[in-house]
Amino acid sequence: MANGLLKFLGCAAVSVMAWVSPAQAGETIVLASTTSTEQSGLFNFILPIFEKDSGIAVKVVALGTGQALDVGRRGDADVLLVHDRAAEDKFVQDGFGVDRKDVMYNDFVLVGPAADAAGVKGARDATDAFARIARKGSPWVSRGDRSGTHAAELRFWGSAGVELKGQPWYKEAGAGMGPTLNMAAGMGAYTLADRGTWASFKNRQDLAILYAGDPKLYNPYGVMLVNPARHPHVKKGAGEKFIQWITSAEGRRAISAYKIGNEQLFYPLSR
């Protein structure tokens, strides 16, 4: 009686064990990167090219830059591709990462409701645009998630001399770029977005790019290997191959070739 059930469960357990340890074909690295690069579709475009060339499969975990660096610090990724130069340098300095290289850049854009109540369209520069929003008290949605974009946004508030504490118009989403844009679209608020995510974002509703082009909105991405001396399991060879490829002529060509519509989203940085 009860034996039949036990036998069945036993068989089930054995088959679980068999499935749980799958045979892994070829080499795989884990790349911790940002939502902006993943959601823009860039990786879907360039990674198959790298995988075909090298036979190395790249698994992308898309997080905010801060989280991606944490993941690297814990040794849970092999390679990082992020965009917060100051944090990257500190990461390398602290001995968590090695072999840091510039990869590419795009730029941040200030998006907001097309009516542009704060008048950022007429701003002199990016800092002025932020100052106008603060002066008018127009609603703003911040990433609030320690991402590269969040760090950039805070730099601009700082240079505009805006104190954010307790401002009713300033909302922290604590979310990725996409959800933050969804919120901004829903609330008719301003926010800072990277051009890649914005270009592939579909739920724009009334949002439009209101300010772009200031060189200070330049958004460079860097790549680095998680320090194998600190985390011996890091796939050093495969990781180095990836870093070498993405900064090589072929890698640069692949990055330049990725377009949405006719718009090129990322510009390779030559060494």
Binding site: F43, K59, V61, G178, P179, L181, S200, N203
Partner: peptide, 21 residues
């Protein structure tokens, strides 16, 4: 980690599409 073709499930795919708008 919501890794494409590796650990993407229905729910994480839904979350991803939502964040892509």
């Amino acid at each position: 980690g919501n890794i494409d073709r590796s650990t993407r499930t229905m729910t994480t795919a839904i979350a991803l599409e939502t964040s892509k708008g």
